[in-house]
């Protein structure tokens, strides 16, 4: 088999967009983007990331994102109803700097900035779905964990029906046969 092109993945952490661990470096080996490490194979990954971090920390450019988090990144809205709305929305927005995490449970500064955006807009009375649409307009469907109503997602919604239908077809004949036989006995 042909090996993969190295450009395919970030085998080399410096390649570009080093932001993930830079931005995270305040949290260090932060669980935030290391959700995956509990599978042993991923220990290797982290080691590489960590080695990369060591090199970066040793470099003169050791400066990291030193700013405090955005005002509403770690502060709830005063109105519990609004906060609940914001929380529900944040749980379904993807943290762009993490692996499989919503912005509601990430320590990445960018996730904090996104939470700030969401809370600010909710406090201003904006509708949660409008905020989602605002983000989708900028980052595409990727940013939303809630599947959007678009043709490309329809097969996903049809899947449970297809499965049930398939099961019904496979099983129907079976029971009917046995039932008729039993009633015939």
């Amino acid at each position: 088999m042909k090996p993969l092109q190295s450009s395919h993945r970030h085998s080399e952490p410096f390649h570009h967009h080093s932001q993930p661990f830079h931005r995270h470096s305040r949290e260090g080996g932060n669980p935030a983007h290391n959700r995956w490490n509990w599978i042993p194979a991923f220990a290797g990954m982290t080691k590489r990331v960590v080695l990369a971090m060591m090199i970066i920390l040793a470099a003169p450019l050791a400066a990291q994102d030193q700013l405090p988090p955005a005002p509403l990144a770690y502060k709830q809205l005063d109105d519990p109803a609004q906060e609940a709305k914001a929380q529900a929305l944040m749980e379904t927005l993807r943290c762009l700097k993490c692996q499989s995490q919503s912005i509601a449970d990430s320590d990445a500064p960018m996730a904090g900035d996104m939470r700030h955006q969401v809370r600010t807009r909710i406090a201003a009375g904006e509708d949660p779905e409008a905020i989602r649409a605002w983000l989708v307009e900028r980052y595409g469907d990727y940013v939303s964990y809630a599947p959007q109503n678009k043709p490309i997602m329809w097969p996903l919604f049809a899947a449970p029906l297809v499965i049930l239908l398939l099961a019904a077809i496979l099983l129907r004949g079976r029971f009917r046969r046995s039932d008729t036989k039993e009633s015939g006995e």
Partner: peptide, 16 residues
């Protein structure tokens, strides 16, 4: 851009 407002506003997800 301390709150990544412009960054979010133009759909940028990292630096640079």
């Amino acid at each position: 851009d301390d709150l990544s407002e412009v960054q979010l506003g133009i759909g940028s997800s990292g630096v640079p």
